[in-house]
Amino acid sequence: MAQLQLNNIVKRFGPVEVLKQINLHIQDGEFVVFVGPSGCGKSTLLRIIAGLETQTSGEVRIGERDVSDLAPSDRGIAMVFQSYALYPHLSVRGNISLGLKQAKTPQNIIDERVEYAANMLALTDLLERKPAELSGGQRQRVAIGRAIVREPDVFLFDEPLSNLDAALRSSVRHDLAKLHKNLNATMVYVTHDQVEAMTLADRIVVMAGGVIQQVGSPRELYEDPQNRFVAGFIGSPKMNFVPAIDGPNGSEIAAEGEASSYELGLRPEHLSLRDADHPEGEPGVVQFSEYLGSESFSLVALDKGHQVLVRHSPHEIWNIDQPVKVIQIRDGYRFDRDGKRI
């Protein structure tokens, strides 16, 4: 196990700068998740760490070593791919042990490690099967097993669960969390899925346009986003953004077309609905209401021209076209014109 350090990583594909000065320090044993919109460079960064792509400039350090110029197999990493990428002509055992064989590991150690990994991932009965004879979840577990036996300093995962259906995804996600606890390994994980990011990560790295927007624990990112992008990206459903000005009693929402001095970010759970005759709040009309069992969401068109999504108890029932008042039960986040938090 080891720490991982990225210093001033830049990657250009021709004239396009895909990664712009990435600096990141990942602690020994940490589980770090990269999130960001499609095409922001997450996979590229992961592949640079793995050595499958060469950075235009910058340095990758694993442990105490500068690995920038080493081949993938010499970096002490293992990688799990979105498409499983199992060798079709080898059995499960062959798939898991190929890397060790390639490194000329003694046979008794190979057997030992394969058995250990197979036990941990419940693959013992499948060892002699070919990949074609496995289900999607089993294939992904084989791919994870292949990574485990290498006993790498750093595990790299590129959207490992996105090809699985919802039920399998959560079960393999739990396996991964357990694996991290058991091995206490350094792990870097790329995902599109907010739930995976929030539940697995010690720290989340939010990227956009080849730039790291913010690094922090899931709680920090959710409760203390540093810019509008992070505030909008983390959290589902999304934060509401409305233009606002300072009034006598704190922020006041500005009507559409009126001057505003900043943007106010309000999470759906920071708002609440009241009857139209309530003395405070912004008047509006309910557009639609979604009942999700444990909670409900209503979209309200404010008289000032903006739409906001409000989370409320499933026992509150608001009808379409019903006039309501929206009140703030917590202060919102303020963002300046450049999207910076103020």
């Binding site: 592949r47 793995a50 050595g51 499958l52 081949a71 993938p72 197999s73 990493i77 293992a78 990688m79 791919f81 979105q82 498409s83 499983y84 990428a85 199992l86 060798y87 190929l98 890397g99 390639q102 490194a103 791919a143 292949r146 290498r150």
Partner: peptide, 14 residues
């Protein structure tokens, strides 16, 4: 041919 497959082999040292 899947590039993931070739990359997996590279990581495994082939």
């Amino acid at each position: 041919v899947s590039s993931d497959l070739k990359n997996a082999a590279r990581v495994d040292g082939l």
